[in-house]
């Protein structure tokens, strides 16, 4: 009697094999997932480590520190304090402010152009375009994302800059508007693709309900479909913003690269990523300039991280409010 009881408790060989296989598969998938996370964390750690001398090394500390990077400095006695990025000079000046202003100006122009264009194109494609046209439109706009940014930068440098200067009469040929519009060419497909997917995923029943109440297609698209897809459209905008802040080659070629702290969009600008790309090749390894460039990398990292986190929290709130559990 006791023997049969033990017999029953012991797993059969096939059951045992199945359990081992399941455990092995789970372990592999977990490992792969962790590798992805580890890569992100390690990149951040190594970039941050190179920036650390700003705070720890007395050598680097002589050239710069947080206050000198973020506050206006009076470089000559008796002159008003100002922000200056002049890393290669007798007295190296590492103010982040002109770079921030430049990045924000270019990004603002890019988003101002690409959010309306991208979302409107997505709305048109999902709600109004006949099926044949939609099948052409979507891959065509997505193809824009496949153009290498150096080609777009070249186009901006040679063609776009001339056209815009002739139209608006900018004093500097390469400026925030030129770079921002060129940047928009890469941001539009990102916003378009993700928004279009979100809009298409809105259930047909919402559209039918709206139309059955006597709404026109426009009213249905703007007052029902777009709000219902808001979380996805917002995610698209955030992705586009991240793309726009991090894009290097286009702004390097089309922005003029003058680190100026002005609020005119017609002035040349220098952005954070373009600064890294332009200067990393000629810095002294381990010197102050080197550490500051890595510090810029950390800033870019933090920007996108904070932005994504805020956006994710906001999207969650919107979704919860829609679902009625808030």
């Amino acid at each position: 009697m006791a023997g049969t009881g033990e017999e029953a408790a012991r797993p059969s060989p096939s059951m045992r094999r199945r359990q081992v296989r399941e455990a092995a598969i789970q372990a592999v998938i977990t490992l792969v997932a962790l590798t992805g996370i580890a890569a992100v964390v390690l990149i951040f750690v190594f970039v941050a480590r190179e920036a650390l001398p700003i705070f720890t090394s007395p050598e680097v500390g002589k050239e710069t520190d947080l206050a000198r990077m973020f506050l206006p400095q009076a470089w000559r006695a008796g002159r008003p304090a100002f922000f200056s990025w002049q890393p290669v000079s007798d007295v190296p000046k590492y103010s982040m402010v002109p770079l921030f202003v430049g990045t924000l100006k270019v990004t603002a122009v890019a988003m101002l152009v690409s959010v309306p264009v991208g979302v409107a194109a997505a709305l048109f494609t999902s709600e109004f375009a006949p099926r044949r046209l939609r099948e052409v439109l979507k891959p065509t706009i997505e193809l824009l994302a496949g153009i290498p940014s150096v080609v777009l930068g070249f186009f901006a440098l040679i063609v776009l800059a001339t056209v815009l200067q002739d139209t608006f009469g900018f004093t500097s040929r390469l400026n925030a508007v030129v770079a921002g519009i060129a940047l928009a060419l890469t941001v539009v497909p990102v916003i378009f693709t993700v928004s279009e997917d979100a809009l298409t995923a809105v259930p047909r029943s919402y559209r039918e309900a709206s139309l059955a109440l006597g709404a026109t297609r426009w009213e249905t698209a703007f007052k029902v479909v777009l709000p219902a897809a808001a979380p996805g459209v917002l995610a698209a905008v955030v992705l586009g913003f991240g793309r726009s802040i991090g894009e290097t080659m286009i702004v390097l070629m089309a922005s003029g690269n003058a680190a100026m702290t002005t609020f005119s969009f017609g002035d040349s600008v220098r952005t954070l990523p373009a600064t890294i790309a332009a200067e990393m090749g000629e810095v002294v390894f381990g010197g102050a300039h080197y550490a500051v460039l890595f510090f810029i990398g950390v800033e870019l990292f933090l920007f996108t991280f904070v932005l994504n986190t805020l956006a994710a929290a906001f999207v969650k709130r919107v979704v919860r409010r829609m679902a009625g559990t808030a």
């Binding site: 029943s205 039918e208 059955a212 829609m322 679902a323």
Partner: peptide
């Protein structure tokens, strides 16, 4: 607007 409709599956807007 004159001939309203109620559907099989309830479809309130979010």
């Amino acid at each position: 607007r004159r001939v309203g409709m109620v559907f099989q599956k309830s479809n309130p807007f979010p």
